[in-house]
Design a protein around this nucleic acid. Structure first.
Length: 171
DNA sequence: AAAGAGATGGTCT
DNA sequence: GACCATCTCTTTT
């Protein structure tokens, strides 16, 4: 599983009437070789999930205010994850509008902190197994293929290794 | 349209 | 004590 493969997949959170689902349209890859990655200096209490099994959710607090969510993509001890930067909502838009009141629809989940706000993802979801249908947060594959030719570009919001085009977006 | 600054708190040195 | 994988609001072109 590499970063572009997540494009087109569905990210789902919540149960029943409280569920919000979005199609992943922008991701960003992080590895242990990357000075900008939380895993660069090895496992810590915060990033331990990154070194766990793949298919789990790594959630961290950004700037003391926002939550950001990653999918662990490497094998055990690899420390690889993909930041979920943006989704297009396909279900539960009403609830997302309530959580992000005052925003236009396109501003509901077009950023990593906004994705978590719109879907209701927070620190309690750190370590969630995304492959279990019964999990509070999960990744679903509805057959929608990833883009054949994703748009790539430099990563955002970091100051290190910005020359590597490890950011991917659906056209 | 673009640029700047403040909020706010955990994590690591 | 410094540094942020951000967002929003305000100010300036």
């Amino acid at each position: 599983m590499v970063a572009p493969d997540l494009l087109g997949k569905l990210l789902a959170a919540g149960e029943g009437a409280g569920s919000v689902v979005g199609r992943i349209v922008e991701t960003e890859a992080y590895t242990v070789d990357d000075p900008a990655s939380h895993s660069f200096r090895g496992p810590t209490a915060r990033n331990r999930v990154m070194f766990g099994p793949p298919g789990h959710l790594y959630v961290y607090r950004s700037y003391g205010i926002h939550w950001c969510a990653n999918v662990v993509t490497g094998g055990l001890d690899d420390g690889e994850a993909v930041l979920l930067r943006a989704v297009e909502l396909v279900e539960g838009v009403g609830l997302a509008r309530e959580r992000r009141s005052g925003r236009t629809d396109r501003e509901l989940a077009n950023g990593p902190g906004k994705v978590c706000q719109a879907l209701g993802i927070d620190g309690t979801h750190d370590g969630t197994d995304l492959t279990q249908l019964s999990s509070p947060v999960r990744i679903l594959d509805d057959g929608h293929p990833p883009p054949a030719r994703p748009i790539t570009g430099p990563r955002i919001g970091i100051t290190k290794a910005i020359d590597v085009p490890w950011r991917f977006r659906s056209p």
